[in-house]
Structures are given as structure tokens and as C-alpha cells.
């Protein structure tokens, strides 16, 4: 059976007996996943392609609801309630649980408007407040220096690494509690990757982070906890160091030593 560490510190999210089935599939893509997510720390999800990492990640902000016909089971607890109920306010939920995608997704608007987008959605119109918070978000995302003189330029003129940091700035500008990263560096060069990793570590001061990665070194470098998934199940969740040095499950051992996947 799975070996799940009992997290002593405060938890941001708690996944219990979670199941997920895509529309039209006969079998669930996630089976009985139980997983605590520690607050203000970084949890990495690793596992071979198709094991369900993205599927799990997109359940935290109910992204799957955009496509009708998918079904959830079990529960995900956030701020003391199960967010899988039909009455959950998804707009509210998504402003508290932000997401960064595999590829940079700069909106077709200026750099400033990109970062201000989430705040404007929340009704913030005050110019000075917007300016201040955009500046702060860009600084926190370590991209302010590069763009401060061209905030009005089209965001699509930025490089891939810059765009990804812009997306992070956009996500943190609304001050979320949790940030979900789905292989945020898979489309980037090594230097940009380093920058993003550094940034992710800095961010955990303020937000709880879940990061999906294909790259075990990356998981080892940045995360506090690591979960190993296989065929839709969470096989093992442990402190990152322990999981990589002394894995408790045979499957985990095989995976991290490169025997498969």
C-alpha cells in the first residue's frame, strides 16, 4: 500500500480518497488519492508520463469543470471546506488557488495589463493601487528590472522565460494562498529554468506551492515534500530528501533509480 507521510505542520490542502474520471473514460484516472499539502512549503509531484500529475493538479482549482462530463469523488479540503461540492464558488476559489502552465501564456495585451488583469477582475480600479501592486508583483517575480521601462508594450514581445515570470507575476498579484505549477520550466532554457526555480523557492514564504515536474533533479532542488505517482495512484509522499535517499516503496525506488519511466 501507499506510504504517505503524516505532516505535522499546518496543511494548506488535504486530499482524501480523491478520485477523478474523465468524460467518457470507463476507469478513473486518479484512484483513492490521499495527500496532505503542507502550508507555505513546496510539494513536488513526480511520476512517469500519464500517471495523473496534471489531472490531480487541475483538480485543486477545479479546472476540469471547464469541460463538462468529468467527475470527481472523495474530497479536497481547503480552508475548512470540501471544494468539490457543486456550490463551491469557482471564481473565488481560483483567485485563492492560482495556476502557472506548461507554456507561458501571456495574454494578448500589454505587460501592465497582463499583471493587472486578475486585480481588475476583482474590481480594483484605483490607479495608484494598481500601479503599486503591479510593480510589487513584477518585483516579486524578479522581472521588474527587465520590463519597468516598457510596461505598455505587448507582452508577446518578451522572451519565453520572461513571459513565464510575467505569468507568475500575474498569478501572485492577486495574492493567492496556493500556487499550482504544471511543469513550468519544460518549455524553457536552462538559465531561465534556474531563474524560475529560484523564484519558486522565494515564493514559499507567502504561498503554498505544488509543482509538477518531469525532472527529478528539479524536484530534489526545490521541494520540501515529494509525492510519487504511478498509474493514477499516489504511491509515496515523503520529505523530499528522505524520498530520494531512502524511499519506502519499491516502485519509488525503481523510478528514482531510473529503472523505468
Amino acid at each position: 500500500m501507499a506510504s504517505i507521510i503524516d505532516i505535522k505542520e499546518e496543511c494548506a490542502l488535504h486530499v482524501r480518497d480523491f478520485e477523478f474520471t474523465y468524460k467518457g473514460s470507463s476507469a478513473p484516472s486518479l484512484k483513492k488519492v490521499t495527500m496532505p499539502i503542507a502550508r507555505h512549503s513546496i510539494t513536488a509531484l513526480i511520476g512517469p508520463s500519464g500517471c495523473g500529475k496534471t489531472t490531480l493538479l487541475r483538480s485543486f482549482n477545479r479546472m476540469h469543470d471547464l469541460y463538462p462530463g468529468n467527475s470527481y469523488g472523495g474530497e479536497i479540503e481547503f480552508e475548512g471546506r470540501n471544494i468539490l461540492t457543486p456550490k463551491e464558488d469557482l471564481i473565488q476559489l481560483r483567485t485563492k488557488i492560482g495556476m502557472i502552465f506548461q507554456k507561458p501564456t501571456a495574454f494578448p495585451m500589454s505587460i501592465f495589463d497582463n499583471v493587472a488583469y486578475g486585480m481588475r477582475l476583482q474590481g480594483i480600479k484605483n490607479k495608484t493601487e494598481l500601479n503599486d501592486r503591479v510593480e510589487k508583483a513584477l518585483k516579486d517575480a524578479a522581472i521588474w528590472k527587465e520590463v519597468s521601462d516598457r510596461l505598455k508594450h505587448d507582452a508577446n514581445g518578451l522572451s519565453g522565460g520572461q513571459q513565464q515570470r510575467l505569468c507568475i507575476a500575474r498569478a501572485i498579484a492577486v495574492e493567492p494562498e496556493v500556487l499550482l505549477f504544471d511543469e513550468p520550466t519544460s518549455a524553457l532554457d536552462p538559465i531561465s529554468t534556474q531563474g524560475i526555480e529560484k523564484l519558486v523557492i522565494e515564493l514559499k514564504e507567502r504561498v503554498s506551492i505544488i509543482i509538477v515536474t518531469h525532472n527529478m533533479q528539479q524536484a530534489a532542488r526545490v521541494s520540501d515534500y515529494t509525492g510519487f505517482m504511478y498509474l493514477g495512484e499516489l504511491i509515496e509522499l515523503g520529505q523530499t530528501e528522505e524520498l530520494f535517499v531512502t524511499p519506502k516503496e519499491k516502485l519509488t525506488q525503481e523510478y528514482i533509480t531510473g529503472k523505468f519511466g
Partner: peptide
């Protein structure tokens, strides 16, 4: 009406 409610409408 909050900004979000307005958006929903």
C-alpha cells in the same frame, strides 16, 4: 453589488 457579482451578471 461587488465587482465580482457584477461580472457574473
Amino acid at each position: 453589488m461587488t465587482a465580482v457579482q457584477k461580472r457574473i451578471v
